[in-house]
Design a protein around this nucleic acid. Sequence first.
DNA 1: TTGTATGCGTTATCAA
DNA 2: TTGATAACGCATACAA
Lengths: 329, 329
Amino acid sequence: MSGKVTIATVAHHAQVSRQTVSNVLNSPHLVREETRGRVLAAIETLGYRANQAARQMRTGRSRLIAVRIEPANDGINGSILDRFLHGLTEAAAPAGYRIMLYTATGDDNEIATYDDLLASYDLDAFVLTSTHHGDARTTWLAEHDIPFVTFGRPWGAPDRHPWVDVDGAAGTAEATERLIAAGHRRIGFIGWPTGSGVGDNRREGWYAAMRAADLDPSGLERRVDDGVAEGRRSAQDLLAGAGPTALVCASDSLALGALRADARAPVAVIGFDDTPVAQAISLTSVGQPLAESAASCVELLARLLDGDTHSGRPQHVLLRPHVVVRDSG
Amino acid sequence: MSGKVTIATVAHHAQVSRQTVSNVLNSPHLVREETRGRVLAAIETLGYRANQAARQMRTGRSRLIAVRIEPANDGINGSILDRFLHGLTEAAAPAGYRIMLYTATGDDNEIATYDDLLASYDLDAFVLTSTHHGDARTTWLAEHDIPFVTFGRPWGAPDRHPWVDVDGAAGTAEATERLIAAGHRRIGFIGWPTGSGVGDNRREGWYAAMRAADLDPSGLERRVDDGVAEGRRSAQDLLAGAGPTALVCASDSLALGALRADARAPVAVIGFDDTPVAQAISLTSVGQPLAESAASCVELLARLLDGDTHSGRPQHVLLRPHVVVRDSG
DNA sequence: TTGTATGCGTTATCAA
DNA sequence: TTGATAACGCATACAA
């Protein structure tokens, strides 16, 4: 059944030269229709698939995209990467690309890994996650002219490279509006300390939605590190002060904590990220369109790699998250 | 700085032939020490890394291992794969292997993917997860002589292939013993319906531990589909009947449900898998040694691929999970 | 429209 | 112990 089917096998079977087979694959318009049909039939019959290694030797392209897999660090939010990776793999396959994994500790180590991966496997591109302020990785990649796309905006830096991101502000705004529509007037926000792009962005949505509804957000906000305990403390604190009847949180961890602030004074709570935890405890949460984000990453990369770079189409994609309604709000 | 450093560049730099460089890399014993030193120095200086594509053309080996990434289906337990994948990637790198991802829906589709991956990328091996009864994949791979290892025992089938698994029974036994040591006498078990290898195995540990302590397990067991609601119902059911004071569960989902069975009659609960959910709600849970499992998979594969197959070392690895103690039990 | 020749970077075979 | 040469499978320039 097998026994290494090469372009020569196909050529022999279809009674043409090896070159003609190659043409059918790479420049079909050069081949007469009848010949092409014969060759394609042979390819089908023999189950021929081009050998990537050989192709790569000639073209210098591996059709491989590398992504870093991080340890599920904080656990509760880590499970997002899982779904993103799945989406990436699924979107890349039909475009003819495969996903290769790597790990790294810190930006410098990651850059060294790029070098290694590039030299050994001739990677076509990288997908970067968790972009942050002063990201050395994007600088290095850009300098070396390596195609890449980030999942996450280049916070605080000029966006010279293609990126895909989720509009966190739109998410918290939708959550806030939903609570307003449900009759809440004093809606609090628990988020991360000022300075993180993602965190500030999520806070923005709540703030804007409150103002848009002529509600006063002052005193209704706490900024703390991520964590269940922190969420709980912040919620208790708010409850004792401004006394919100609902809370929008920057993460499911914070939301889970908020949910347990006070059993006697139940507040509506909406989390962020729609993690497994939210599903498990029936927490309403803002869910990111991870599969769609991944597909967009692949699309931007494919465009880059297939030379279509000057088509003028947008290099940036901002996707809207949506509130997944459950029992908590 | 770069500009494609090949074996020829190194040869030139070290004043030797290309072949000698290759020998230094692949058969060092053939090269005089002084020459070898010179070549290695050149390699270091130039930052040479062998081109995998070219190497693969000659050797037929890609140093690529494929793993399937599944959609985080049920969410709560899906996050396990994440950590396993990370471990795999981390363990494979030092052994000179890289991890490639693929997706598939159903065994047949997965087998078609094998064929594709093998033909295009010359994959060296596969790591299979979620093995099940009558697994068509292992049969196919074995028939085609493709090296592979499964994470999960070949339930109900003769184990002709290398596998790595976690001793679920040991985990639930440890959980049960822990509860016994804490003074509990009536310890219940909530697990999955009879017939799933993993589920039956986890039940075994509880049963054995109860008997070993001269405790009567009868009436203290419920078998239901996985899920928070199912866990809750089962726990309420048990509480109303045999009245256990503690519960061992086959999953964190079930455990979470059990925890909410009755706020007025708190029972000790221990879950399984130590998912992010367990961490979030401070649920004591049996944690699988995922990184270690992944490392074992790589080790078994490396042994297989490096021809060391007849060394007589064991092809099966059974690892012990451990209870991660938190507030619930 | 089709066929011939060449080279990508590496390793295996063989000769020096 | 080292070096020359061929071959892996494919794609490109060029000739027919």
